[in-house]
């Protein structure tokens, strides 16, 4: 892999690290970028026993068949994106391993495994008003009765396409967005957060905030 200092995430130009705080205090919306997370597109028919078995072997869990749900482990999990489509999310720079494992396990099946890590980034949102700020741009009902940890949905935020993934009951959400829309999405969300108070946190703080609240759930 390339030396990390040579790489730029889609939001690097906003100098978020320079704005990051250690303690978000009373901010109603707390946000940060999760950089270089591994993301692999997996396509195949879950009703095909060879595919199902191969995917399970490679991932260590079966990709979820219930629409708009997430399954897996803490460091690698799969978001349902369609009846034959998942997004496998993992720790930074694990995409090559995941692609290789899936391709090996699915050789001979009609399946597609594609590294899409570099095409998207993740904006993590948490805080007391995380739901309110998402509601300003996204038509999905995020009420706990309608949505919750382990759920995902593809939708829109304002004029960008996003994948929403709720991680815990804090609530914490990951918004996956195409890298070319990341600047727009970040600015729209920060603008929408004005009335709630907005804080930027770096990844370690993000993770710490999340650990403090919930011992389980995908990270």
């Amino acid at each position: 892999m390339v030396e990390p200092y040579l790489r730029q995430s889609p939001l690097d130009h906003l100098s978020l690290d320079a704005r990051a705080v250690g303690d978000p205090g009373g901010a109603g919306v707390v946000a940060g970028e999760r950089r270089f997370i591994a993301k692999v597109s997996l396509r195949g028919d879950p009703a095909d026993p060879a595919f199902a078995a191969g995917a399970k072997t490679a991932l260590g869990f079966a990709p979820p068949v219930a629409p708009n749900t997430v399954d897996g482990k803490r460091d690698r999990y799969a978001l349902w994106l369609g009846p034959d489509e998942w997004l496998v999310v993992g720790a930074p720079d694990t995409q090559d391993k995941t692609v290789a494992a899936l391709r090996a396990a699915l050789a001979g099946c009609h399946a597609a495994v594609t590294d899409v890590s570099e095409g998207r980034t993740i904006i993590r949102l948490t805080g007391a008003h995380a739901r309110d700020v998402i509601a300003k741009g996204c038509p999905i009902d995020l009420h706990p009765r309608a949505f919750g940890p382990g759920r995902c949905a593809q939708s829109r935020y304002a004029r960008a396409l996003v994948i929403l993934h709720q991680l815990d009951e804090a609530p914490t959400f990951d918004l996956h967005v195409d890298r070319s829309f990341a600047d727009y999405l970040w600015r729209v969300i920060e603008d929408a957060s004005l009335e709630y108070g907005f804080a930027v946190v770096a990844e370690p703080v993000m993770a710490a905030l999340k650990r403090r609240r919930t011992p389980q759930g995908q990270d």
Partner: peptide, 11 residues
């Protein structure tokens, strides 16, 4: 048919 009721803007 897969995702259930969603707003028109998604279609």
């Amino acid at each position: 048919p897969w995702c259930g009721p969603r707003d028109e803007v998604e279609y």
